[in-house]
């Protein structure tokens, strides 16, 4: 399995550390209800198809990456830096080579 780091290019999966679902990026606001926190911490989809998760390029550039992949074909479809573009990169490369994730297709049951 290979993952494309937006900064380093295509790399072996062993360079990355898996964190979990990309849902972790949607942290509830301060003062949010218990249900929101419960969903944030514990409730996850288990899709057959497109899914998004977080990987850390630990043996590389130390970037957090949101990877879109297909759980049925194991294809890695796209990846993007999690950090805001402002701080994400150095000048001369204002927009990281990010690919837009394909729109979520509803496969089978919805």
């Amino acid at each position: 399995m290979r993952i494309t780091c937006p900064l380093c290019g295509s790399r072996d999966r062993r360079e990355f550390y898996y964190y979990g679902a990309a849902d972790y990026l949607a942290r509830p606001a301060e003062g949010a209800g218990l249900e929101a926190w419960d969903a944030y911490l514990h409730l996850r989809d288990n899709p057959a198809g497109m899914t998004k998760d977080l990987w850390y390029h630990e043996a590389g550039c130390s970037a957090w990456i949101e990877v879109t992949r297909d759980t049925t074909s194991h294809a890695v479809l796209s990846s993007r830096l999690v950090a805001a573009v402002e701080s994400a990169d150095l000048p001369g490369r204002s927009a990281p080579a990010r690919k837009k994730a394909a729109p979520r297709k509803k496969k089978g049951t919805s």
Partner: peptide
């Protein structure tokens, strides 16, 4: 040298 995200 570039040495990582946002670092040289």
């Amino acid at each position: 040298l570039w040495s990582g995200r946002g670092q040289a």
